[in-house]
Design a protein around this nucleic acid. Structure first.
Lengths: 202, 202
DNA sequence: GTCTATACCAAGATAGAC
DNA sequence: GTCTATCTTGGTATAGAC
């Protein structure tokens, strides 16, 4: 019996990757503890036993997913181009964050889920703190260039807002368009009436 | 020595309340699924069996806690005083939210923990949506009075910011003082240079 | 109202066949 | 590499004594 393209594709795709993808999806949707190995195996169409060929334990599976997640999040380009007007730099930065937030949504969601429970958070504390610090630092520098008062506080506030944004995207059914959000943010920091000088990607 | 009805009542209440408090603490710290009945019983210094005298199941316990949480959150006074300058109304509103955020921190944290997992969220969806809608509605009205452009979008943005704030209070070790945060928020919506007209509570 | 003992089950993990 | 069968543990929940 000949196999369809899709079937072939599925067989070809490595089992490990399938497990990782399915596990991420379920961990995000139901939470780590509420998701059982059986559920993951079932959805990935493999046996429970096979799981343990690729991962030493359930926790090990989580670790790999989170590592993978941090890697994706780190693609966020923190460095800002030199020689460009700081106003444009801020715009680029906000663009980059919002883009990343959309394209890596699953990982952001996982990141939040870790963040809300102090005990769980501890394990990945160091990497998370590093990520946050880098974020705040870049933004603070940018605000300084823009001559905004209390640049560090403002950086914290904007970072905080982005966290809330992820949260709301998870919860909300009626989402505000990203371009409106972007412009609303920028207008708070850039006094010019013509904030929207360029088209947003989305 | 015979006990009165009232005394029994009080004993009953105190045990139950102890369970509720301990469970809230553990659910928030470790998460619902990661917390076992044994752990709750141990920390509350009661037996596992007694748990089931007060609550039909672990899930029932969670339900009661969440109900209690919503009740606390609802104490937030959404209605704004009439006859007062809208600028002051906004200030009062922000004050009220920040105060509530501090005094009911545990419940806000629980609220976020529910929010991050779509599957869990579904169960309490209706109550949560109602709470959010009321919040946004009040704020939108206030922004309209203040003649701010896109009042509904701005209300969403500020609500989003508050969500992020809870998240950051959970995660961060170095927290910005509440009065600075308050002033930073207000200065974004009130153009006057003299935002800080009154002392904040904290 | 509170405890101990225990039933029952589902989850994580391993062994060994193919 | 993948499966099925099985072990082991720890969890929820119940029964019954005090």
């Amino acid at each position: 019996m000949p196999r369809t393209k899709k079937q072939f594709e599925e067989i070809r795709k490595s089992s490990k990757e399938k497990i990782l993808n399915v596990a991420l999806e379920l961990f995000v949707k139901k939470g780590y503890h509420a998701t059982s190995i059986s559920q993951i195996a079932q959805k990935a169409k493999i046996s429970k036993g096979l799981m343990y060929n690729y991962f030493a334990s359930k926790e090990d599976l989580l670790d790999e997913i989170i590592l993978q997640g941090f890697h994706s999040l780190e693609e966020l380009e923190f460095r800002t181009k030199r020689g460009v007007h700081p106003q444009t730099q801020l715009e680029d930065f906000v663009d980059a964050v919002l883009d990343n937030l959309y394209s890596n949504f699953n990982y952001w969601q996982l990141y939040l889920a870790l963040l809300v429970h102090p005990e769980i958070q501890k394990k990945y504390e160091k990497k998370m703190k590093q990520f946050r610090d880098e974020f705040i630092q870049t933004l603070t520098l940018l605000f300084k260039k823009l001559k905004i008062k209390n640049p560090k506080l403002e950086a914290f506030l904007l970072g905080t807002f982005f966290d809330g944004l992820v949260l709301n995207f998870i919860a909300a059914e009626d989402v505000f368009p990203i371009s409106k959000i972007k412009n609303a943010i920028l207008s708070k920091y850039i006094k010019s009436n013509k904030v929207q000088t360029r088209k947003t990607k989305k």
